[in-house]
Simulated assay, not measured.
Amino acid sequence: MHILMRMLVALALSTTVSTAAYAAEYNGPIRIVVPFAAGGATDALARLLAPGLAKELGHTVVVENRPGASGQIGTAYVKNAPADGSVYLLALDHSVVIVPLITPTAGYDALRDFTALGTVARFQWVLSVPITSPATTLQQFMEIAKNDPSKRNYGVPLMGGMPDLIGSSVGNKSGVAIEAIPFNGSALMMPQLIGGQLASGVTGSPEAVTMVRAKKVRPLAVTGDKRSQLLPEVPTFAEASVPGLNLNSFNAFFAPKNLPTTIADKFNAALRKTLANPDVRKQVSDMSLDLVDSSSIPEAKSELERTYRFWNTSAAAKR
């Protein structure tokens, strides 16, 4: 009887272990959800990294765009997805951290609902005007906005956070309210800015550099505590007498909370190998992004926590 019981217990334990191992080893296609429209910098970054991740992970990797509500729709989708390695999120700190702070109905929390898997790149925010605008400096733009109500607007690829803070800070400095015109991603905003339907617009440095090189917009100022190496002639907002805009943003991979450690480690290792590829590194640099090529899971978690603390205590996040 004792022998039979031991055999049954051993069989039960074996079944449990086998089931757990099966659950931890997902064998289907992997989806990378981008919570913005196709054509923007985050989407381009996801599509650049997908082949390398597919090679390293041994799975088909598909990029899936789920835009809307400043990244809220796609981010919430991943939060509710199975934590089995089938779905990952490549997003800005904005959609993961700031949106739930300013939108009570978002239904997710950066620290509670996601596993940070690795920071990919960082970038600055840029305020630009159409190339046809008479403003060649931020001071001139503020003077024009002060005198012409039709020029008191700025396009933003998402609401809240740094883009919103830029507009409110410039408005406060100029003494007039400047209206934010929201879009679901930079790709949808840029044609309106280039065409002059917007008086100004805030984009990440990748989109800004592309438009500047094509001579379609004129950049007036950048965030951060130093000038962009890609736009060295453009002053920081602090240099242009608009302080408090020295925080930059990052792109990072996330997974639903409770992703098994073995899967998280495997994904992080695949990401780091992909980012070490010289061709990938060059293409990321060509996208005007500051590559982060050695972000471990603890480092990614620490960066997420620092960003959360900043915006959670900042009145700017709740505008």
Rank of each mutant, 00 (worst) to 15 (best):
L230C: 00
L101H: 07
N251A: 08
G52V: 08
A21F: 08
Q283S: 11
S70K: 06
L220A: 02
K151P: 02
D286F: 04
K266Y: 01
N80Y: 05
A41W: 04
V17E: 10
G58S: 15
A46H: 04
P278H: 13
S295P: 08
A300H: 04
G160Q: 08
A44I: 00
R31Y: 07
P100E: 03
T115S: 10
L198C: 05
A50L: 09
V34L: 06
S86Q: 10
L230D: 05
D148E: 15
G85F: 04
L158G: 05
L11W: 10
G224S: 07
V292G: 03
R272D: 00
G195L: 08
V170H: 06
S18Q: 14
Y22R: 13
T15R: 10
D225E: 11
V33K: 03
N251M: 06
M211A: 15
R6T: 10
V9P: 04
S296V: 09
L291H: 08
T223P: 00
R31W: 03
A317R: 04
I131Q: 10
K215M: 09
V156Q: 07
G40P: 03
L138W: 06
S186V: 00
L90V: 08
F183D: 00
P243N: 11
A106L: 06
S205R: 08
L4E: 13
V212P: 01
P134M: 11
L8C: 11
V156A: 10
N147Q: 15
A69N: 09
V217A: 00
A135F: 09
V126S: 02
F114T: 01
S295F: 07
A135D: 10
V156K: 02
Y22D: 13
G68C: 07
M1V: 05
Y154G: 11
V9R: 08
E179I: 04
P134A: 15
E179T: 14
A214M: 10
P104S: 14
